[in-house]
Structures are given as structure tokens and as C-alpha cells.
Simulated scan of single mutants.
Amino acid sequence: MAAFLEQARTARPLDGVVVVSIEQALAAPLCTSRLAEMGARVIKIERAEGDFARGYDDAANGQSSYFVWTNRGKESLVIDFKQPDDAALLHRILGEADVFVQNLAPGALARAGFDGASLRERYPRLITCDITGYGTQGEASKLKAYDLLVQCESGLAGISGAPEAYGRIGVSICDIGAGMNAAIGVLSALALRERTGQGSGVSVSLFDGAADWMTIPYLHELYGQGAPTRQGLKHPSIAPYGAFTTKDRRDIVISVQNEREWQQFCAAFLQRPDAAQDARFASNTERVRNRAALDSLIAGVFAELNTDETLVRLSAANTAYGQVRSVAEMSTHPALRTWPMRVGDAELHMVAPPVRAPWDQGHFDRAPALGEHSASLRAEFAVSEAGATV
């Protein structure tokens, strides 16, 4: 009974699932790393020079921060699938696989005979996932799709930043979004296969993900009064909702979401209950319309208080707030969770997975060296004298 309970505690939802991925950079590797965290066996196919993300930087104890984040717990197999023997090896592996993920340029795998439709015809239970920049049809599909470029093309950069300058979202958010959407697609296809017995093809693009996030500004532009302008650390349609600077030069963002919160804020933080009755600030619509006067009133109080005094008053007013922290300050945040991961000869404290689950290991498996598993995988999927996979 104890052994059964221990097995139940450690079982992961994708135990036994085999994922093959021809991947590079960020979106596809992030997708498959999430699948690996759920228990999948992920076989990463690399060219002789390796995933170019291996060379992005050396911040993680001499290794690429991008690579160690998105390739934990995978196996690395170096092949050239354009060569007949390696193509045959890849087919033998795919014959045993459940999922195939790829994010090469549109058409690259089709020319080699490994496009999703052909693979699903040959292996009916296989799930294929294609990750592209702009889809596979139309003029836009030919565009190169690096993250910042997609931020620009999708309009995301157009509403980010301060009024005087566009701003890039500070992480590769379009790549990350595509990777997460791909993981959702793969999990959905696995669930469907449980009912039908058949694999299916799913696809995501960086642009589709960014466009989905742009739905609110899109609707405002087409059917409202126009898309929001760049506001920096201010909300375009709620006030007060933005950053104010304390006497000791600390920026704190506050958010007041309704009239009850506004009245509490006026009484306990501003210590001006009468401000709640000011016709200019009587509703969110009026506060947004009179934002300059509102911000001036609030900024004056912030300027008289140091950070500790400000936080005490905000707490007394039950006002939501967030301190604008540096990455160094984020690294010591009381809410931050980390897991250890071996990288070279050191143990790094990596940010823990965002999904907390019963199957959490409490540590990360290491990322593979280039071709680390080539010999063992070639042996595992070798052809016997009788012509069958060993």
C-alpha cells in the first residue's frame, strides 16, 4: 500500500509520452520543456552545430541562459535528416513517438518529407505541432519572425513604452506566448486522441498569439474611440492606476478599481475625504478625463512621504499597490520560488515552474550537451538483422 501511494505521488501526467522536436531558439524548446516537466520523454533533434540558442550568452555558469531554461531534462540527438540513413533513423523514432514539434522555416521539413500531414498519414496516432512566425499562407508567412519584430508587426510595441518613445516588452514575450500556446495545443490533441485513437495536427504562430493579446486595443480601435496610446506606467482607461514617486525617490504603482476603493483612498491615504466628492473625480470616467489634476493631487502627497510611510498609508487605505522593482530586487522577492539545477560544475537556483502540481520534483534535470545522447539513441533505434527496430 505504501509503495502504491508513493507511486501515486510521483506519477506525472505525461509519463510514457515520447516527444520528438526539431527545434531552435525559444518557442518550440519552451513548449517541449513544459511537456518534459509533465513527464514526457523529449528527444531534441539538433544539427551538427547545435541549436543556435546554445550560443546566445554565457550567463548561466558559462552556458546560455536561454538554453538551460528551455531544454531541461531533454535528450540531444545530432543528425542530418537530409541524409538517407539519418532520415530512416528519424522515421524509426517517429514510429515510436506520440508528438512531433517543429519550428523551422515554413516548408523546410516538407522538402525533406517530414511535414505534419505526411507524418500523420504514415503514423496515424502521431500528433504534430508546427510553430511559425506568421502562419504558412499568404505574403506575411515569408517574413522572418524574431520576437521584437513580431512585437512591432502586431502593434504590441505601438502601445508599449512611454508617450515619447515606443517600448519593447522586456522579455521575448511573443516567443514565450507561442511556446505556451503550442503546449496547450499538444495537450488538447493528446486529450482528443484518448477519445478517438487518432493523432491530429495543431499549429500556432507568434503573430497569432500577439494578436490575441491585442484584442482589447483592437476592439477599441475598430469599434470604440480609438486604441489606447502609450502611457508608460499608467493604465489607459482606469484612474488612478499608475506610478507615483515617494520622497525618497521610490516608484510605486497604485490601482483604484471602484468607487468604494476611491473613497477609502481619499480618506486614509490622501487624508482628504472631500476629494471623493469632487465632481472632477466622482467616477472613473471623470477621473480619466481629469487625469492631470488627479495625478497632481496624488503626486503631491507621495512627494511628502518616504517609502515606509507610503506603504503604511496604502495598507491602511486597503489600496492595491506594487513597488517598481529591479531584477536584483525581484531575485529576493518573498513570493519568488526557485528549484536547484545542475549547470556544469555549479548548482543554480532557477525560477520554479509557474504551475504548482502534485508531481513537482522540486529540482530541474540538467540540459543536455550537444549530441550527448546520440550514441544511445542510435543504438536504441537501430535496425536488427531481421529488419525491425531493436
Score class of each variant (00 low, 15 high):
Gln7Phe: 04
Ala8Gln: 15
Leu14Ile: 06
Gly16Ile: 01
Gly16Glu: 07
Val19Phe: 00
Val20Gln: 00
Glu23Lys: 03
Ala25Gln: 07
Ala28Thr: 01
Gly50Tyr: 14
Asp51Met: 10
Asp51Cys: 06
Arg54Thr: 10
Ala59Met: 08
Ser64Gly: 01
Ser65His: 01
Tyr66Ala: 13
Phe67Pro: 04
Thr70Cys: 10
Gly73Arg: 02
Lys82Ser: 15
His91Pro: 08
His91Lys: 15
Ala108Glu: 11
Ala108Gln: 12
Ala112Gly: 12
Phe114Met: 01
Ala117Trp: 00
Asp130Lys: 04
Tyr134Cys: 08
Leu148Met: 14
Tyr166Ile: 07
Arg168Gln: 09
Gly170Ser: 11
Gly170Phe: 05
Gly170Ala: 14
Gly177Phe: 05
Leu187Tyr: 03
Ser188Pro: 10
Leu190His: 00
Gly197Met: 08
Gly197Cys: 06
Gln198Arg: 12
Ser200Met: 15
Phe207Tyr: 12
Gly209Leu: 06
Asp212Asn: 15
Tyr218Trp: 15
Tyr218Lys: 03
Leu219Phe: 05
Leu222Asn: 08
Tyr223Val: 14
Gly224Thr: 02
Gln225His: 12
Gly226Met: 09
Ala227Thr: 05
Pro240Asn: 13
Pro240Met: 13
Tyr241His: 03
Thr245Asp: 00
Ile252Thr: 00
Val253Ile: 13
Gln257Asn: 07
Gln257Met: 10
Asn258Phe: 00
Glu259Pro: 09
Ala268Leu: 14
Phe269Gly: 14
Gln271Asn: 12
Asp274Lys: 15
Ala276Arg: 09
Ser283Gln: 10
Ala292Thr: 12
Asn306Gln: 05
Thr310Phe: 02
Thr310Tyr: 02
Leu314Lys: 03
Gly322Thr: 05
Thr332Asp: 10
His333Glu: 02
Pro334Phe: 06
Arg337Ser: 02
Ala352Pro: 09
Pro353Val: 07
Pro354Lys: 02
Pro354Leu: 12
Arg356Asp: 05
Arg356Lys: 15
Gly362Tyr: 11
Arg366Phe: 06
Glu372Met: 01
His373Phe: 04
His373Ile: 07
Arg378Ala: 09
Ala379Gly: 08
Ser384Pro: 09
Glu385Asn: 11
Gly387His: 13
Thr389Ala: 09
